[in-house]
Nucleic acid binder design. Sequence first.
DNA 1: TATTGTTATACTCTATAACTATA
DNA 2: TATAGTTATAGAGTATAACAATA
Lengths: 170, 170
Amino acid sequence: MVKTSPAVLDPLQLGAYFALIEVSSLLRHAVEQQLRRAGDLSYVQFQLLATLGDAPRGCLRMTDLADGVVYSRSGLTYQAQTLEKRGLVSRAPSSEDERSIEVAITEDGRSLLADVFPGHIAILNDMLFAPLTGQDVQTLADVLARARDHMRQGPARSAAPRGRAHRSTS
Amino acid sequence: MVKTSPAVLDPLQLGAYFALIEVSSLLRHAVEQQLRRAGDLSYVQFQLLATLGDAPRGCLRMTDLADGVVYSRSGLTYQAQTLEKRGLVSRAPSSEDERSIEVAITEDGRSLLADVFPGHIAILNDMLFAPLTGQDVQTLADVLARARDHMRQGPARSAAPRGRAHRSTS
DNA sequence: TATTGTTATACTCTATAACTATA
DNA sequence: TATAGTTATAGAGTATAACAATA
């Protein structure tokens, strides 16, 4: 039988959850404003550009690009079109699979990333890292990485049928 | 002179940042879906209801309610109206300060919260807490609380003028 | 048939600025 | 004048479903 989670959180868990939500929310809001000012980018657009910038040849298929950044295909199409109009990415059919589109970051895209990075990093340092020790950061990275890997693995069992309908795990 | 942050992040910081963003993003997306299904609530609406539910008499002024959940006044007005139409909150002018509106969670609001909580908590347990030890949670709560308190204090100095303005917004 | 991606469409949410009213 | 809140409006972003094309 699958281990059933208790129906409540202990205060420690509640604190961790609230702090996580609040920290990421405040951080994201601050970073979004900086990205908008420095490069007229939304956070999602920045994530897409940064993902491409890190990719082997600055180039990924739409589907792979979407992974983890965007939650619907049409949403990615929308953003990719926006970025393409600005000349920050280019799109071309894949030679291997004619169904696929390969998205590549352009020179302008890399240049904009470079413009935006310093301010981005400054915010992270000032807001997030300033009050933390090296050990804190180490632990944070370790624990969150474990959580992330876990989330990436199985689709959350409880993502489906809870709440209103109070039937037990059927 | 203000201490200047280094222009780059070390790999550890980068890892902590990415993991934080990814974890909170995955978590929030999962929770949003659950809230929508179980109670037809957006995350912000849930936060507002939950904040009211925790308040001394289930009642807060608009301004205090906004704090930390919403980033503009009109945004709160919009959400408060939405919740009021559904009978989940009520609004009445404050007797002390005629300018203020006091928002109170209703019985229906509390009932909906109760409907939604179990599924919400189940997701947290399954996605976030399952792979973590009690010590992990303890540390996470501690470190993130410190970060949050720091963020709450001063408006980030770097929120203003960094990253070379790329004014070609035309 | 399954997969990749686009389009049309409708909707939610947010932000800015102008506004009213009270302190 | 400053504060509390609303309104009008406009724009960004997202999701769903129907669609075309390739594997």
